[in-house]
Design a protein around this nucleic acid. Structure first.
Length: 919
RNA sequence: GGGCGAUUAGCUCAGGGGUAGAGCGCCACGUUGACAUCGUGGAGGUCGGUGGUUCGAAACCACCAUCGCCCACCA
């Protein structure tokens, strides 16, 4: 083995072999465990969020596989309608052509090409992460099977009246030319203006002043509304105003929606371009006048001065016109929510179009009930509140998109415009008796990407066929995902799963946080703060990192700033940390629900941890070369052996328990603590006392070797779900030495729990206390570690004496002692530096070693601490109500504590007086 | 406007009614035969603020402050 851990030397070969040997397939058995992967965009690349999520899932999957569950990690990718279409369109534009020039069929071919070309990338990156998905079952949302499931669901919903088509106001993206669901619209505060326009009241010389943020829509106004109780305008309700510019008479209506306090208390009503106005229009039976083209330009039906103008130019022109007419009352600055498409960033228009909708309420009801009843559990629990809030107020889902890439809506129209929904054209013809003479054309629209995603847990398992996989693995065990897609995806899977697969899609939903940069900022290309998981694994030099972050920016002028920040933060570039260190970092940061600041210090620490494991293994392997697991070997009954076994079992139990509650941070912490601070710091050192002892019997040595090998082998198993590569690499060597056959650690099951060993643990605590006492003196007195010291003990109890006889050799080695001498209580201790363990006094003679002043200083510090502790304790004990009301046991503990502190103080004081006399 | 979360050591974060924890960083000493990606020792916090509940609060409750996120139609 190399002297230093080299991740690149070990990682890839193991993955290749695991995959080749089919180790990620369900292994059978009665107890299924299944996770469906949140399907990444098929043409996307792995980012930190994926890497984090995949680490969590892979850890859970590997853990359950080792525990003997029939384990499936269902993999697949998503066609990501808008996102993918946009990427390909951009490529076409760069090549000087366009989607429209190509035409639908050729364009879709292009997208398939792009998918073929780039679709493997995300999978290769998953492999680098060590993700043990079942590659043989990989699916794609546009596969024939999944597409059939989509059509099936659509048709069934339609037949039940849960899908309908209608002309309504939708969120229209004038850049992408498609409808969007409410979820795809993000509203942000932006500063704008509130314009006050005067509308002349017909038949009077009065004006009504309306306030608006959207002057250009006045062309489509069909009413002015006031509050019914607003005394100012009560007399005018029922009259009409003459709409300026277009010279149209529109009514003044009264509606509760109007807030009399806001603006002037008069609202212009444009039912075709505002969601609220739409509803008011419905209530008052107002006409709807569309004034915008799909590009959000003013239509040709409008007055010539404005026709063809972009909406923002039209806005200026309208305001100017009002000004000219003397009808602009005033202009105020105003901050408002501007709705923008989440993909295009374009300001979205409420726009009147024909779209397909899912009637969602009947689906939502059982989905709410499923979470309320606990059939689905959110982890952490508080996310269920977010879920409920949304579900209780859920709106019908607009599922049609005016895109070309996606599942085409299975609806056909005849020449008269009648619509027929069916699984395919032939089915439609058969069902409705439409002969070949009837021309049918299929709906041009495709479905929202999330429609197919909503079927993912059952469509990937073969639905609508009653496949064995569906029977075994549905409902799946847990969904691991981010809070940002609870509405987009989680809620819809629950609704559709209950409706079509007959049960909840998963039992638990584990919601993890977002990976942010070291300053808590969201990682984004435009901020130039993105970390690529693969760069953390393989390392990257500074120049390449800078190049990566500054090329292809939407706002190239930010490049210098990004470069500067990058050079400052990574002056040496990024070192190679390896997949295992990255995974362990993610695991250790995976506290429930909280966002994560990714800290390079952490990953470096866990890389070092890998190195520690590596070298501990080198030690174990080199000291057990003669060990033969197949030969008869005594069980190791030494205190060190018993202790490390008990600690091992404790650790196994903790890790399993914490994984069971998705606390990967606590699980990984337990492993780290055990491996480094118990196994390496103590056990390996203790084992040397036996292994390097010429007087130790071969049997004793063999027993120690056995413990070394078995403990390490067990540790590797527990480590494997977190660090699959290094655990496999080392296991290849250690497994056989432990007498285990099997080609891979993947063949080995999760280790059994064991029993605690209070006696061995108590003895070890004693031993450690004595060692630490001497080390502390050594450390604070600056005595070289190599210098062997004499040790004096006083006030030794019988049990101290027994332990001393038993563990003398260990003690001498661990504390590097040259001698141990037990003095009578009455004996005079020579000038010493001292430490205490209960009543037992540990002394290191000062002659030539220890500075009296320094020791006085050291003891004084300890004295102060003990005195402070005593004061605190006594404060409690002198408080009558504490003694009276606190549980007896607590009072007893406190009393004992006071006594101990007093004892310590007495001893230190007497020692101090001895030392002071010396001076 | 509603909701959720955060505030603990210099940094990143655990914890949780009974004497404050980890990793990293820092200081000192050290190349002892697994490991300097290391070892040993040490320093460092009145747990955001104010009240309340309690024998006891960093933890529970209320309010406040700061930061973050989500939802919502105020023109």
């Amino acid at each position: 083995m190399d002297k230093t851990y080299q991740p690149h030397a070990i990682e890839n070969k193991h993955y290749e072999r695991w995959e080749r040997e089919g180790r990620f397939k369900p292994q059978g058995g009665t107890d299924p465990f299944c996770i469906v992967i949140p399907p990444p965009n098929v043409t996307g690349t792995l980012h930190m969020g994926h890497a984090f999520q995949d680490t969590i899932m892979d850890t859970l999957i590997r853990f359950h596989r080792m525990r003997g569950n029939n384990t499936l990690w269902q993999h697949g990718t998503d066609h990501a309608g808008i996102a993918t279409q946009m990427v390909v369109e951009r490529q076409l534009n760069a090549a000087g052509t366009s989607r429209r020039e190509l035409g639908r069929e050729a364009f879709v071919d292009k997208v398939w090409e792009w998918k073929a070309q780039s679709g493997g990338r995300i999978n290769d990156q998953l492999r680098r992460m060590g993700a043990s998905v079942d590659w043989s079952r990989e699916r794609f949302t546009m596969d024939e099977g999944l597409s059939a499931a989509v059509r099936e669901v659509f048709v069934r919903l339609y037949e039940e009246g849960l899908i309908y088509r209608g002309k309504r106001l939708v969120n229209w993206d004038p850049v992408l030319h498609t409808a969007l669901s409410d979820l795809e619209v993000l509203s942000e505060d932006e500063s704008g203006h509130l314009w006050h326009f005067r509308y002349p009241v017909e038949g009077t010389d009065q004006h009504l002043v309306v306030a608006t943020t959207r002057p250009e829509t006045m062309l489509g106004d069909t009413a002015v509304a006031v509050h019914p109780d607003d005394a100012r305008y009560a007399a005018l309700v029922g009259k009409q105003v003459r709409l300026p510019i277009v010279d149209r008479l529109i009514p003044i209506v009264a509606d509760d929606y109007v807030d009399p306090e806001f603006g002037t208390g008069c609202v212009k009503i444009t039912p075709a371009h505002d969601f609220n106005d739409y509803e008011i229009g419905q209530r008052h039976d107002l006409p709807m006048i569309n004034v915008l083209t799909p590009d959000a330009k003013i239509t040709d039906d409008m007055p010539k001065a404005f026709a063809g103008l972009d909406r923002f130019d039209a806005r200026k022109a309208i305001v100017a016109q009002f000004d000219t007419l003397g009808l602009l009352d005033k202009t105020e600055p105003h901050s408002l929510k501007v709705p923008r498409g989440d993909r295009s960033g374009a300001v979205v228009e409420p726009y009147l179009t024909d779209q397909w909708y899912v009637r969602i309420e009947p689906l939502a009801k059982p989905a709410i009930e499923a979470v309320e009843s606990g059939r689905i559990r959110f982890v952490p629990e508080n996310w269920s509140k977010t879920y409920f809030d949304w579900m209780y107020n859920i709106q019908d889902w607009c599922i049609s998109r005016q895109l070309w890439w996606g599942h085409r809506i299975p609806a056909w129209y005849d020449e008269a415009g009648s619509v027929y929904v069916g699984r395919d054209e032939q089915a439609v013809r058969d069902t409705h008796g439409l002969g070949p003479e009837v021309t049918l054309h299929q709906d041009e629209d495709v479905l929202d990407t999330w429609f197919s995603s909503a079927l993912w847990p059952f469509s990937t398992l073969g639905w609508p066929d009653a496949t064995p996989e569906l029977k075994v693995f549905y409902p799946t065990s847990v969904l691991v995902t981010g809070f940002d897609i609870i509405f987009f995806w989680v809620a819809r899977m629950i609704m559709f799963g209950l409706k079509f697969a007959g049960d909840v899609p998963f039992r638990e939903v584990y919601i993890h946080g977002l990976i942010r940069d070291q300053d808590g900022q969201k990682m984004s290309k435009s901020k130039g703060n993105v970390l690529d998981p693969l760069d953390l694994i393989d390392g990257i030099d500074l120049q390449s990192l800078v190049d990566k972050r500054t090329t292809g920016l939407m706002q190239p002028h930010l490049a210098p700033r990004i470069e500067k920040a990058t050079r400052r933060q990574f002056p040496e570039g990024i070192a190679e940390f390896g997949t295992d260190a990255l995974r362990f970092t993610f695991a250790s940061l995976a506290t429930t629900g909280r966002d994560i600041r990714f800290d390079l210090g952490r990953i470096e620490g866990y890389r070092n941890f890998c190195n520690k494991l590596w070298n501990a293994s080198r030690f174990v392997l080199s000291t057990t070369e003669q060990y033969d697991a197949t030969a008869h070997c005594e069980h190791d009954e030494s205190v060190a052996g018993r202790w490390i076994r008990a600690r091992t079992h404790q650790m196994i139990t903790t890790v399993a328990r914490q994984l069971g509650r998705y606390r990967l941070d606590l699980a990984s912490q337990a492993i780290y603590e055990f491996a480094w601070h118990e196994f390496c710091d103590w056990y390996l050192e203790l084992s040397k006392a036996t292994l390097y002892d010429d007087d130790a019997s071969d049997a004793t040595k063999r027993a120690t070797q056995r413990t070394l090998v078995e403990t390490l082998e067990t540790l590797l198993r527990v480590l494997h779900p977190f660090m699959p590569f290094i655990s496999e690499e080392i296991w290849q060597r250690v497994g056989p030495r432990a007498g285990l056959s099997g080609a891979s650690i993947c063949d080995i099951s999760w280790p059994e729990d064991g029993n605690p060993d209070p006696q061995a643990e108590a003895d070890m605590t004693w031993l450690q206390a004595l060692v630490l006492g001497v080390r502390q003196i050594r450390g604070e007195m600056d005595i070289a570690p190599g210098k062997a010291l004499p040790m004096l003990l006083q006030h030794a109890s019988d049990s101290d004496r027994t332990r001393l006889t038993r563990y003398q050799r260990l003690l001498m080695r661990m504390a590097n002692l040259e001698s141990i001498e037990v003095l009578d209580a009455a004996a005079d201790l020579p000038p010493c530096a001292t430490a205490l363990h209960g009543e037992l006094k540990i002394g290191v003679p000062m002659a030539g070693l220890i500075d009296v002043d320094k020791e006085i200083e050291r003891l004084t510090k300890q004295l102060k601490k003990s005195q402070a502790d005593l004061a605190k304790t006594q404060g409690k004990l002198t408080n009558a109500s504490f003694v009276e009301r606190a549980p007896a046991q607590v009072v007893e503990t406190e009393k004992a504590r006071a006594q101990e502190h007093q004892q310590t103080i007495d001893q230190i004081q007497s020692q101090l007086s001895v030392l002071t006399e010396l001076n």
